[in-house]
């Protein structure tokens, strides 16, 4: 396929956001919606005030039409996020945030911020802190990589995607030098 070089080595952020939209999220419908057979997935009948899990893309669509409100995932609570930041600062490894924590939080904050019960500025700051602390750890990890081994468990897809081209090429060079 004729793709620009950058597309061959890594995903774009938009591609990862797209994947993240298939994650399930809880909504509280406001209107009746009949069940629907969609491609590959069946939307159950939605009844007002009954919590239902739907994919993120559908939740955001219904939210836009004012047919539901979205329940933010537990890990996005301010207190839980604070714990994550604290752990991230103290522990050497990466804390176990969801695989799509960046695109998911970004989409929710952009499309459904009025459903969030806590302080939006605080949570944005906490997410930013998390990102920066984790990025600093990634940077430290790069110098420790050798020709056959790298360990960075707990990284999310988007963060992996950022270091993948550098890591794979560096390790290839190191491997050649090792022989």
């Amino acid at each position: 396929m004729a793709l620009p070089g950058a597309y061959l080595e890594a995903f774009t952020a938009e591609e990862i956001s797209f994947q993240a939209e298939d994650e399930l999220i809880t909504i509280i419908p406001r209107r009746h919606i009949q069940e629907m057979q969609l491609a590959g997935w069946k939307l159950p009948a939605l009844r007002p005030m009954r919590r239902t899990d739907v994919p993120l893309w559908l939740a955001l669509l219904l939210k836009k039409q004012d047919r539901c409100s979205i329940v933010f995932p537990n890990w996005m609570d301010e207190a839980v996020l604070k714990d994550f930041v604290e752990k991230e600062r103290v522990e050497p490894g990466f804390s176990s945030l969801p695989w799509f924590w960046q695109p998911q939080s970004a989409a929710l904050l952009a499309g459904a911020s009025d459903d969030y019960t806590g302080n939006l500025d605080n949570i944005r700051q906490l997410l930013q802190d998390l990102r920066e602390i984790r990025q600093a750890k990634v940077r430290q990890g790069i110098t420790l990589v050798n020709e056959s081994h790298m360990q960075m468990d707990g990284l999310s897809l988007m963060e992996l995607n950022e270091v993948r081209p550098l890591m794979s090429k560096t390790m290839a060079t190191l491997q050649k030098l090792h022989q």
């Binding site: 890594a10 774009t12 970004a106 952009a110 950022e162 550098l166």
Partner: peptide
């Protein structure tokens, strides 16, 4: 250049999302 392209894409995406 490759890594910078990936980072620039990430930054543009973040700026758009907020």
């Amino acid at each position: 250049r490759l890594v910078h392209g990936v980072m620039r894409n990430m930054r543009a995406w973040q700026a758009f999302g907020q």
